[in-house]
C-alpha cells in the first residue's frame, strides 16, 4: 500500500516523465559520443547555458501567472550593452557595481512590463513584444555601432572565465533560492494562486496586480543579470547578443512541464527542461551531425521531446485512472 502510493505519486508528477525523456536523450547521445558525460563537458554545458537557465527561472514565474515575456533577450542586450559601454569608455570597472547596474536596468525594464500588464490589462505577449522592439533598438542606439570587446572588459570578464566558479555559484544560488521561495514561502504560493485562478486569488485577499508586477520585475531582474553574465562569459557586448533566444527559454520551461495557461510548473521541472535544451545544443556538433543539418535536428528533437512528454503523461494519467478504478 505504502509503496503503491509512492509509485502513484511518482508517476503523477511531470518531472518523472521528464526524467525518462532526459535519460533516453543521454543514453542515445552517450552511444553516439561515449565521452559526452565527462566532467569538462558538464561544466561547459552549464557555463555556456547559464543565461538560459537563469532566465528560465524568471520565465517560470511569469508563465505561472499565465503570462509570457518575449522581451527578455532585448532587456538582456540593453543591460549588457550598457555595462559594456560603461567599461569601454572607462567610466566604471567595478565588477560588483556593474552587476548591480545591469540587474537594476533589468529590474526597471521588468517593472514597466509588469505595471502595463497588471494595471493596463494588456495581453503579456503584446506588451512584451513592444518592449522587445524598444529595448533591442535602444541597445543599438546606445552602442553607437560599437562593441565592447575583450580588452575593454578585461578585469570584469575574469568573473565568467572558463574555470572561474562565479557563474556556477550564481546558478546554484538562483535555483536554490527559487526552489525555496516557490515551495515554502507565501509569495511563492501567491504566484501559483494567481496563475491557477486570478478571481479566486483576488477574493482570498491576494493583491493580484502587485503579484503580477513583481513577477515581471523578477523576470526583468534575471534578464538584466543574464545580460551582465553574458558580457562576462563571452567577454564581449554586441547589440544583437542572444537575439531571438527568448524562444529557447520559453521552450525550456514548456519542456520542463510549465503550463502556458498558468498555475502549473516547478523549479525542478524548469531545471530539467533547461538542461535538455542545453544538452541538445552541446551534443549536436559532438555527435557528428552535419553542420547544415544541425538546426533541423534541433527542431525535430525539441518537438519530439515535447510530444513524447505529452504521450508519457497521457499514459501515466491513464494508468493512474485505471488504478483508481480498481
Amino acid at each position: 500500500m505504502e509503496k503503491k502510493s509512492l509509485w502513484a505519486k511518482l508517476t503523477a508528477s511531470r518531472e518523472a516523465s521528464l526524467l525518462v525523456v532526459l535519460a533516453v536523450l543521454l543514453i542515445v547521445i552517450s552511444i553516439l559520443s561515449p565521452t559526452f558525460l565527462s566532467f569538462t563537458n558538464v561544466r561547459q554545458i552549464l557555463l555556456n547555458n547559464t543565461l538560459t537557465m537563469v532566465m528560465a527561472l524568471g520565465m517560470l514565474c511569469v508563465m505561472l501567472t499565465a503570462g509570457i515575456d518575449i522581451s527578455i533577450t532585448s532587456t538582456l542586450a540593453f543591460a549588457g550593452m550598457t555595462i559594456g559601454m560603461l567599461q569601454k569608455y572607462d567610466i566604471l570597472h567595478n565588477t560588483f557595481l556593474l552587476f548591480v547596474i545591469g540587474s537594476a536596468i533589468g529590474l526597471v525594464c521588468g517593472f514597466l512590463n509588469g505595471i502595463i500588464i497588471a494595471k493596463g490589462k494588456v495581453a503579456p505577449i503584446i506588451c512584451t513584444m513592444g518592449f522587445m522592439y524598444i529595448w533591442r533598438g535602444m541597445a543599438y542606439v546606445i552602442s553607437g555601432n560599437a562593441w565592447a570587446s575583450g580588452q575593454d572588459v578585461a578585469g570584469f570578464s575574469d568573473f565568467g572565465k572558463d574555470g572561474s566558479i562565479g557563474p556556477y555559484i550564481i546558478l546554484l544560488v538562483a535555483y536554490v533560492t527559487f526552489f525555496i521561495v516557490m515551495k515554502w514561502t507565501r509569495f511563492g504560493r501567491r504566484i501559483y494562486a494567481v496563475g491557477a485562478n486570478p478571481e479566486a486569488a483576488r477574493i482570498s485577499g491576494i493583491n493580484v496586480d502587485r503579484t503580477i508586477t513583481s513577477v515581471y520585475m523578477i523576470m526583468g531582474f534575471l534578464a538584466g543579470l543574464a545580460g551582465v553574465l553574458s558580457v562576462s562569459i563571452y567577454a564581449s557586448a554586441q547589440p544583437n547578443m542572444q537575439y531571438a533566444k527568448e524562444m529557447d527559454v520559453i521552450a525550456a520551461c514548456v519542456i520542463g512541464g510549465v503550463s502556458m495557461s498558468g498555475g502549473r510548473g516547478s523549479v525542478v521541472g524548469t531545471f530539467l527542461g533547461a538542461l535538455i535544451i542545453a544538452i541538445i545544443a552541446k551534443a549536436l556538433p559532438l555527435v557528428g551531425i552535419d553542420a547544415i543539418a544541425q538546426n533541423l535536428v534541433k527542431g525535430i528533437i525539441i518537438l519530439a521531446v515535447v510530444i513524447l512528454n505529452v504521450i508519457t503523461q497521457r499514459m501515466m494519467d491513464r494508468q493512474n485512472l485505471l488504478r483508481r478504478e480498481l
Binding site: 521552450a251 502556458m260 538546426n295 518537438l303 515535447v306
Partner: peptide, 15 residues
C-alpha cells in the same frame, strides 16, 4: 500550447 508547436516547426521548416 500552439506557441511551442509552432516554435518547433519554425526551427524544422527553416532547417
Amino acid at each position: 500550447p500552439t506557441m511551442i508547436v509552432t516554435l518547433g516547426t519554425q526551427i524544422i521548416f527553416r532547417g
